[in-house]
Each structure stands twice: as structure tokens, then as C-alpha cells.
Nucleic acid binder design. Structure first.
Lengths: 263, 263
DNA sequence: TCAATAGTGTCTTTCAGACACTATAAA
DNA sequence: TTTATAGTGTCTGAAAGACACTATTGA
């Protein structure tokens, strides 16, 4: 029987002013079966591939849900990460090779319904990546990893576990949130025209956006220092357009008004 | 120095006993220790008590965090509920006696940092209740259950576990969301004046709202059938005001524009 | 020249916020 | 009559959406 010893002094500073009894209690604590859960992280990784919104899926090679397509997530191994964010970043890294991308938590669901193995809890994240940045990597078990257009998932149905529901939730979040944020900036090339950015919005929403109205949004982004002109111009068909690049920003830009025609 | 010992015994049955049958696999599945988590639900229950935004806390009577104030949540017992929502409603019911109130998920956090007993995951909900509807009930272990003004929690610090962070997150969500929704309707008396509704917003935000501007929002709620006139008038000081009541609605009303002076 | 796209300007509508004005109660 | 509050109307400013107009490239 193997034992892993975790040094408790690495825990947070709040612990320091607790009673000795408390620390003692924790040291001797052994969880019961009934309050231990199977816990998964399920990232819904979106990209825009050839103008179409895609989501990253893996085809499971083992039970349960063998051969079904699934989100590239799964159980969190307590021994491999210190917290949720770290665990998520490990999963993102292992499938996409990216050590950094935009992500946000979407929801957590749990219960008996989601996994044949019993009561389980899943936390769903949405992640946005640039298609050209990603090099798909089969994982250790050799599971196929592939992009799939979000509107063609019915051809793969049923997806593993509760994953179709998770994708629906992440997609709803994404579609809602881009009506008042600049999130698609994380999915276009690092140097882009206003047209390319608008087409990213359109790919996600599945509707056309008035060119001139969108142009004003782009102007707001420039005025707020979210994007800046590179000075170079595109050489597509038609009049050359200014090429922009995004300025690094922690949080997405939030516009003061939503687009109303897409609600 | 205290040590926490985590049992890492691997279950060989999972690894070796491969079967082609999904159901059979699940039936024979036994989780490993390393992917089982301590999982908690932590509801941040808000109310407006005498014009002040309060949050419901319990004083823990047992280790860990003995004597500290904590959110009225805790471990989810797999045997007592079929899913997260059911588990949450049980917790809400047991502390407030309410079988129905508005709630929404705020976030899930997890890791070693939150609980001395080891890797744990908590899902935080925000719940809104009418002060007059709640009858506080001490739980089985006789823990004191009390309302506390949100801006006086420093007097109780430190709160148990990661709960101060959870309250901060729920409060931020609430304050942000009421700038574009009618959520405070869930916290005023069932029959209310526009003034009382406005004061609920002010209690939550901690700032004054222009009376006339807010009046227009109330008119929008009437126009959209979210609230309706009762026909009766208030008998407070000053000119009597129309009394309204809320029409039952599943989702909160979302205004097309946010209040801008509170951002 | 023509097609295609970029970029700008104008008009209307909506709503927030500021403020003035009137209305209705109690003391 | 005074005070307190309710309710309405007017004005300004911001931004969306519709649409027209000009600008710049390649074919």
C-alpha cells in the first residue's frame, strides 16, 4: 500500500491562526465514502477553423462511453495539481500544446444522471484558441483528438456522458457574451482586419452583422486601447484595410451597450 | 508539524478488468482515492433586513474551523440527493425553512488551499430571500444561525474555510447583475412600492439611485408585465404610492440597458 | 471602367441621467 | 401652509442600427 504525504504547511495563510485542535483534526481526518465525489473538469475548447466555429473532441478508447466523442477533460488527479485552474491548464496543455489561452468557468453540474459510474460532479470551462496556434496531440492512450464544427455534432451523437449539454451551455455563454465583449479577439490571427474580426463574430453567432455598425465597435476598441493599428494594410481583394493587433489585456473588453439585433 | 496522509491505493480492478459492455463496466467500477474529492455546496443567502443587505451564516460547533462563522452549506451526501440542485434545495430548506427561492450558481473553486482536510471542491450559489419569509432554524447540531450585514463581516473574521472569498464573489455577482435585472424583486415584500424596490437596489449597491431614473425602470417592468398594480396605495408619510406585486416569472427580467452610474 | 471592399457621416430610435414641475397626503 | 413624497415631462448625451456616400485597390 502506497502512501503519499502532503506537507500541510503549504496550505493557506489562514491556517496559521487556527487552533492546534483544528490542525490536529485535519491531520487525522479521513473522508467517508458518502461525501467523496468523482470530480471532472470538462473544457469546451472553441476555435474558428476556416470560418467555422469548431469544438475540440476526443474519441474515447476505453469504457465507459467507449468509442463515443467526448470533451478533452476528465477526472482531476489530486496528486497532480494544487487547484482547479492548474488542473485545467494541464488538461488544455496536454491536448492543444498551448500554455496560455483565454478561458472562463461556465457551470458545474452534478448528480447521478451524468455518469454511469455513480454520483459525479463536472465543472465546465469554455476556452478560446487561435486555430493556427494549436497542434493537436493525441494523448497517452492514443485517443483521436479532432476539431468538429459545432453545428455538426448531431452526426456524432450521442456524445459521451453529459457533454452535449455542456457544449450547449458553453456555446450559449459564448454567443451571449460576445454581444457585449471583445472575446473573439482571442480567436482571430494575431494581426487582423476589422473584417476578419467581424467574421469571427458572425461565425460564432451564425448571423450577419452590419458592416458599418461593427466598424464603430472596432473604433471603440481602438479608442480604448484594446487594439492598435500595426500601420500595415491587408492585401485582399478590394480596398486594402488597416491591420490591427490586440494589446495584451487580462480581462475582456466590455462594451457599454450590447448588440441588440442578435438577441 | 502536522502531516496529512492521503491513501493512494490503486484499484486494480479498474485497470485490468476490461469489458466491452459499458453498463457492466460501470456496475463494477470502484473509484480510486486519487480522483475522489471532498465536495461542498456553499449557498450565499442574501436578504434585506431593516434596509441593510445581510448574509446568512452559521457558527460552526465542531472541527475544522470550530467557532468560526461559515456559510450554511457543506458536504453533499450522495445518498440524500440525486443532483446538485436537489442537494442545494435541501440545504436551503434546512436552514431557512423555504421550499422555494431565487438562486443561481456563482462559481466553483477547488484545490488544497480551501480546506485543511485536503483537496476539496466547493460550488457556490447565491440565493435571494425575503426577510419576512424566513424562520431561522438551528440545525441538528445546534449551530447558531444568524443574519449578518455584509459590510460588517470583518468583525467576524476570519470566516471559516474560503467563505469570505465566496461571499465576495457572490456579492460582486449580485451587485453587477442588478444593474441590468430585476433580481431585487425577490427580496422586497410581496406587495411593494417603487420606492421600496428602489431602496432594495440601494441597499445592495450601497449607493443612491436617482428617484426619477428608477421610476422609468419600474414603468418598464409594468409595461413588460413583470409587475402589476394592486390598485391599493401605501399609507406612508407623503403622497400615497401605488402598491405593486410581482408576476411569477421563471427567469429574472433583463433590462436592455444597464444603469451606468453604478459601474 | 467596374467590382469589391474600406471607411466615414447622417439620421432615427432608445434609454440613462439631470432637473423641473405638478400632485397628494399628513401635520 | 409646510413638508415629504409620488409621478410626469423635458432636455442632453451616448450608442445602435439603417443607409448613403466617398475612397482605394485590382482586374
Amino acid at each position: 500500500m502506497n502512501k503519499t504525504v502532503i506537507n500541510e504547511t503549504t496550505n493557506n495563510k489562514n491556517m496559521s491562526n487556527k487552533t492546534n485542535n483544528d490542525a490536529e483534526f485535519c491531520a487525522n481526518y479521513t473522508p467517508n465514502d458518502y461525501d467523496q465525489m468523482l470530480f471532472s473538469l470538462d473544457p469546451v475548447i472553441f476555435t474558428i477553423k476556416e470560418g467555422v466555429l469548431n469544438v475540440l473532441l476526443v474519441q474515447r478508447q476505453s469504457d465507459p462511453c467507449k468509442n463515443q466523442w467526448a470533451l478533452p477533460g476528465g477526472r482531476v488527479d489530486k496528486l497532480k495539481s494544487d487547484d482547479l485552474i492548474q488542473a485545467l491548464q494541464q488538461k488544455l496543455m496536454s491536448k492543444t500544446g498551448l500554455d496560455h489561452c483565454y478561458f472562463e468557468q461556465v457551470l458545474t453540474d452534478g448528480g447521478l444522471k451524468m455518469d454511469g459510474r455513480g454520483w459525479s460532479v463536472s465543472t465546465v470551462y469554455m476556452a478560446l484558441v487561435r486555430y493556427s496556434d494549436v497542434v493537436l496531440e493525441e494523448n497517452q492512450t492514443g485517443e483521436p483528438v479532432q476539431w468538429h464544427p459545432v453545428d455538426q455534432l448531431t452526426a456524432l451523437e450521442p456524445l459521451a456522458f453529459w457533454h452535449q449539454t455542456f457544449i450547449d451551455a458553453a456555446l450559449a455563454r459564448l454567443r451571449d457574451k460576445i454581444t457585449y465583449t471583445d472575446l473573439p479577439i482571442n480567436m482571430v490571427d494575431k494581426v487582423f482586419t476589422v473584417r476578419q474580426l467581424r467574421m469571427a463574430y458572425e461565425s460564432i453567432l451564425g448571423v450577419e452583422i452590419t458592416r458599418q455598425a461593427f466598424s464603430k465597435r472596432a473604433n471603440q476598441l481602438t479608442k480604448n486601447g484594446v487594439i492598435i493599428e500595426t500601420g500595415n494594410m491587408s492585401d485582399d481583394v478590394g480596398r486594402p484595410a488597416m491591420l490591427y493587433k490586440a494589446v495584451k489585456h487580462e480581462k475582456p473588453h466590455v462594451f457599454s451597450y450590447s448588440m441588440t439585433k442578435v438577441n
